[in-house]
Design a binder for these strands. Structure first.
Lengths: 165, 165
DNA sequence: CTGTTAACGTTATAATATAACACTATGTCG
DNA sequence: CGACATAGTGTTATATTATAACGTTAACAG
């Protein structure tokens, strides 16, 4: 059984990062085992960086982080992009198109589409899983076969509205 | 009064491009006049290229098109990006984040968010205007103040499903 | 007609992403 | 075991997308 998933909008509230990070990593490990996939050390390394950050990171930010931790090696972009490609394919991370960035998935394994609320003040991103009936109905009416959906809402989160106002 | 707007999914159906192109250009002209904005020849040129294409185009595609039409000049990226910035700001075009591309708006002036159905077979993009109640309700519950939304659905349009199947 | 500002033009460079090819590790099957 | 096939990694070079910085020109207000 999959453990309890995160509540919507958790990224905007205080919570124990360390704990959710550990949990998500173990879910990922299990999921790869089930699917007979290799969560190699590179892939795990990249996933851990994204889990630790809990915020969107650009590929080159991740690259810099890799190069910081592993002295002696000089790691190049394709290595990062390949790990990201794997993690994206397995639904362990998401790509935020409007930021050209990547973020760890809050509900790994769920293959359905996610939605993101992006706070332009604190740069936190909350992942939702709302089924989007109106839009899917419209796509259905047009006979459009949906493959993948990108839903990214930019604005200001509740917390940041307090601080500014 | 604003003229009759396009029906949803028109991009996926046969229709008179020439006509809708002319109409949208005239709407844009009128809208800039109303807002006291300068639809300069550069800006109009870029808008016309996007209207003529009726499909998403990368900034460098537009640039190439500009350089093709205007012999003698060698136009540089910032010129295109600035025109695009203006047109985006006035809601005359949209940016398709998942393609790093731009497309003319089917409903210029409507300031509300649009949704896109992107066919990965024929590369046509249909612009919808569905109000997305479920998602907005969820954002509201979290106290999130929405600014801008990106909704891009990739898949296969009805026409292309026929041809492949 | 002149000062102010918005738009344009130009050069250089930043940021993001991938192609192509060589090497290494992992697993398979004789 | 050892030879093969394949998936993953490493490396170099380069493509693609986007912007910073600064000088010039055009539009317009007074």
């Amino acid at each position: 059984m999959s453990p309890k998933t995160q509540s919507p909008g958790i990224a905007f509230r205080k919570h124990d990062h360390r704990r959710c990070q550990r949990q998500l990593l173990s879910e990922a490990t299990q999921l790869c085992a089930e699917r007979n996939l290799r969560l190699t050390s590179r892939r795990r390394q990249v996933l851990e960086i994204l889990l630790a950050s809990h915020q969107p990171m650009g590929a080159y930010d991740i690259l810099a982080e890799l190069n910081r931790s592993s002295r002696n090696e000089q790691i190049a972009p394709p290595i990062v992009y390949r790990a990201l490609e794997f993690l994206l394919g397995e639904g362990l991370i998401h790509r935020i198109e409007s930021l050209n960035a990547f973020i760890s998935c809050a509900h790994p394994g769920h293959r359905c589409g996610a939605q993101f609320l992006i706070c332009r003040d604190c740069d936190q991103v909350a992942e939702l899983e709302v089924s989007d009936n109106d839009l899917l109905a419209e796509a259905g009416d047009l006979g459009f076969a949906v493959d993948h959906s990108v839903v990214e809402i930019t604005g200001v989160c509740a917390e940041c509205q307090k601080h500014v106002g």
